[in-house]
Write a protein that binds this DNA or RNA. Structure first.
Lengths: 339, 339
DNA sequence: GGCGCCGATGTGAGCGATAACATTCCACCG
DNA sequence: CGGTGGAATGTTATCGCTCACATCGGCGCC
């Protein structure tokens, strides 16, 4: 056990530093803000005083005089879904690199009140901009009801808001479906994510359009909630109804896992009897039984792009209204040519 | 696309509200802080003015006069490991419930400079306390070098720091090992997490002690890095060296997945030939092939406890120096009685 | 040598809120 | 009917910092 930290009553101010260095507070201010026209010897003396007192400028006071806070607000749902949480992680790391801190609040659900409460919380922290990870359409609605005084950047795939960024779910779904079709599959069932998820909707649309373009019938999709458990239940239904299919395009890797589990219990083998494509490329996917073919998304890049956009918006630069990254297909052993 | 938000140049101040309501700014302050002795009619009038201008008190100004910021700082590594990220999620949700915002910064690695940079970032945001998710021992070292002016609460399982909270990894590892021993296993190999992870060290220690208490030899543990890939490689090594074992206690579920994958490739079946116990109970574990026996940790509860401790510390109340939650065993199909 | 200029530094105001103290107003009492 | 007390409200100082402007001092030039 370490000794308890000796807590100092009050922090030193710029005046304390000034007194110790024998200069005016304004000179100290110049030094800590790297202003020109401070003699080298003076700068040094001040710097020493700063170190000696371990002085840290008071952010609140700086904020009051209108200085940049280098703080951005981030709103997410509290879910541990791979997509949203990876996006957050990507943004966090980009923010760190740009020397920005992030004030984060989670909305307990998608009710407008919850979202607005979360927004209110971070807005209380002097943020330069707000980033909202809008996994659900309702979050967008809640947002629309607000008249905010800071710029907002939204992460969502519908393209309804501007500026918004996302990974192109529609394109990803098309690639996945094309892959299955190229392997000779014609009866391709889609296991979708929740209906109010915009990512899920886009993936569904991509699958449906691609099927249509190839003259294939797109049967009604079954809807899960992203969890492995829901995938499992859908897998069971799929086998019970005696539905005919040779391939499954599942809207995320976790549900794929559940589906494959249910299929295996019925003696249906992947990929011998049914090919399966997932979405996300979670770290586990490579080691599923069998290793899962899936769509990889570059969340780190997304995080970096988000921060770039935020900085552009904050500094009143031109920004692309709707920016999109494209997922890439990772072929593993869960898909194969139809016999 | 929604119409672009009309950005107002400057926010209304307490004086704007006061003027509109025809009272002094102090009366407005009383209303927004729910002070007594404001006539009901006045309160109403002020409230209306507040709403009309959608006035929000300026946090920086409040902070300057010493008011509580209702903001806590959180430091993590940017890893997406299930444990740390679930802890963060748990804390975030508890903070939301307590109307606290969270300023989050990730340390790019465990170098003291990285950690200190992250700490500096959040310390610039007027936090009432700092919570550090110290998954690695080195983070603790970096922290020890700092003389901070805010209370610090650490999430770490070694118990070196105070106050600290954690889930009792040692106890969990003991339970897992006991489970295997109770099933008749004697040759139990441990696949450990990285050596500088305190959780990994505690799990290793728990396994070793339990083995010793039962008069069993604990062979040298193999060390992974928490990823499924590392588990896979270790699984391969295990089979190559022709090591004798009937059970595997793997330090987390992801590595378990990799191990089982490697074993399956060599024709070794789980649980027929080898029993496997994981740790974490990630959502996927239930649908692994076979469903994984593992140790479940209550991260939500941990998050709540962290916030309680933070509040206690901030308000100078007595706190338990080292608090621990206990994981519970979830038995699934990857373990069975030794033939 | 005096003037002007510029680099280095100091002074004072003000950001938006709260706390402490001052004032007003009215009801109630002797 | 004046005095008194407490509720309601107003006034002022203050927090730590940066900005705008004031000041100071030395150097170069005519």
């Amino acid at each position: 056990m370490t000794s308890s930290t000796p807590r100092v009553r009050t922090s030193p101010t710029i005046f304390d530093v000034a007194r110790l260095a024998g200069v005016s507070h304004q000179t100290v201010s110049r030094v800590i803000n790297n202003h020109a026209s401070v003699r080298e010897s003076t700068r040094l003396r001040v710097q020493q005083a700063v170190d000696q007192l371990s002085y840290r400028p008071n952010a609140a006071a700086r904020a009051m005089v209108g200085a940049r806070s280098r703080n951005i607000g981030l709103i997410t749902t509290g879910s541990s879904d791979y997509g949203p949480s990876s996006t957050v992680l990507g943004l966090l790391s980009a923010a760190r690199a740009a020397d920005y801190s992030v004030s984060l609040a989670t909305a307990v659900d998608t009710e407008p009140e919850s979202v607005q409460a979360a927004v209110g919380l971070v807005l209380g922290q002097h943020v330069e901009a707000l980033v909202v990870v809008a996994s659900r359409a309702r979050i967008l609605d809640a947002l629309a009801g607000l008249r905010l005084r800071v710029p907002v950047v939204v992460i969502e795939s519908s393209g309804r808001t501007s500026p918004s960024l996302s990974i192109d779910q529609y394109a990803g779904a098309r690639t996945a479906t094309e892959h299955l079709i190229a392997l000779g599959h014609r009866d391709i069932v889609h296991v979708a994510g929740p209906g109010d998820s915009m990512d899920a909707t886009e993936r569904l649309r991509g699958w449906r359009d691609t099927m249509a373009e190839h003259g294939l019938v797109a049967p009604r999709a079954l809807e899960g909630d992203w969890t492995p458990g829901s995938g499992y239940r859908i897998g069971q239904q799929l086998t019970q109804h005696g539905r005919r299919f040779t391939a499954l395009f599942v809207a995320n890797d976790q549900m794929s896992l559940g589906c494959v589990h249910a299929l295996a219990e019925r003696g249906i083998r992947v990929p011998e009897d049914v090919s399966v494509v997932g979405f996300d490329d979670i770290p586990e996917a490579e080691h599923f039984a069998p290793p899962l073919t899936t769509m990889r998304q570059d969340f780190r890049q997304l995080g970096t792009d988000i921060l770039t956009t935020v900085l552009d918006v904050v500094e009143d630069r031109q920004v692309e209204p709707v920016a999109r990254l494209t997922p890439t297909l990772v072929v593993r052993r869960s898909t194969r040519r139809r016999d």
